[in-house]
Design a protein around this nucleic acid. Structure first.
Lengths: 136, 136, 136, 136
DNA sequence: GTGGTCTAGACCACA
DNA sequence: GTGGTCTAGACCACG
């Protein structure tokens, strides 16, 4: 399954076969939209009910995603009005970023090692991927 | 937590803080050991009970991992004798390994890009990790 | 012992005296129901807990059957929603069914031959069983 | 694995990949040899040790097969001399034969029914298999 | 000794 | 409510 819906520069698409929980896909897509500048502080998100209908998902699932983002301070809920992008959202160069980068790199290096990829194979591999349009 | 045990070219290590199910970690490590050529057809795996003791896990959990690999045709179990690498497993140097490396690298590069890590930041990052004892 | 439960075109019946593991009986009955076309892609299976109650079995046993079929790509499980027949299952009228019928018939004929049942004894035997309520 | 050894009209062959226990394969092959008349009362069987070597099996496994057949009265062990086919072995047309035939036929008919094979499909199927060299 | 089956029950993640 | 993971422990079949 794979459904899409547009909103002020926000488009959601679910892949129910990926194994990634629906609420996490929604969270990630909102985060990426912010990081890439497609949405900005004060922008209004679709209502839970509307998004649930459009994505053919359970409203509880949408609410869970919005709720987690509100706890993190990324969204703000104005009761009776809607849900908005917070103005104190984390900067792209913020705090947890370094830790996340380190974690992901360590996991990746461990996987490469487990697959028998030595240092002589790894660096050219990375460089090839960078050359192939990493920065666009 | 992180415990390790060696066996003819097979070493298991669990990360109980990762959130990844134990049986999946075991499956992945066996798969990677085969893909990297560290184990080959006919090699005997540690017994379920021995591995359970070494990893401080429940035998049923180890059995679940072995069992999934048997359903997928990667392991063969001889009751009363032990569990072995199947002879119709993917070849170590085959494209299975290359495909896996490509998948993992693409996922990693996508994550780095989403975190705003540019090419100028990425290569030094990798080199620092390699210098920090990648190959041993 | 022999208990039965109906579901949209799926009826399970266990023979606990046969020595065949319960989870394998469940697997076989799902496979045969698919091969015979009684269930089709997207059909929902009984929930693990409901089937466990109806068959007076442990939920883990039902889950083991569903799980093996999922590894083999025959079922799809949506946590929180249920378990469904995959859309890339073998076609009901396909050669999967014919192959299975041929295999089972050859095994049966071999057994009959080993028991010294000749052609003159076999056909009346089959006809007697058919007359005794084969089709209902 | 599949190894074979000949002896006075007795030839054993193991299929370790079939999932059928080794001791059961040995039992069945001795039974079939008797039923088909290839061996007769008083014939001597290979020693446990010799057969174990030839089949690359565990002597305990051979012993278990011989032992079960001795309990059933089909074999006789003369300590210090060897193991022989009993002279009071069950006749091919004997007692349990009818029950066995009925059991196997019922199982077969149940499988055919589960696969959606109706009476109109079943009889021609059987006849075709008979025509294709059932009696040799 | 090996692995297989099944039960019981706890806790978790997801919709 | 759904299924997933893990533990603990009993009993069995096989070599």
């Amino acid at each position: 399954m794979n459904s899409t819906i547009s909103e002020p520069a926000l488009s959601f698409s679910l892949d129910t076969a990926s194994g990634i929980p629906v609420y996490r896909q929604i969270i990630q897509q909102i985060e990426y939209a912010i990081l890439s500048g497609r949405v900005k502080s004060g922008d209004r998100l679709p209502t839970i009910r509307a998004l649930a209908v459009d994505l053919k998902a359970n409203p509880n699932t949408i609410a869970k995603a919005y709720n987690e983002l509100e706890i993190r301070g990324i969204l703000i809920t104005q009761v009776g009005s809607g849900t908005y992008i917070s103005d104190k959202r984390p900067e792209p160069g913020g705090d947890g970023r370094e830790r996340k980068i380190r974690e992901l790199t360590e996991r990746f290096m461990g996987e490469m090692k487990a697959l028998g990829v030595g240092r002589d194979e790894l660096l050219p591999l990375i460089e090839r991927h960078i050359a192939g349009g990493f920065d666009e």
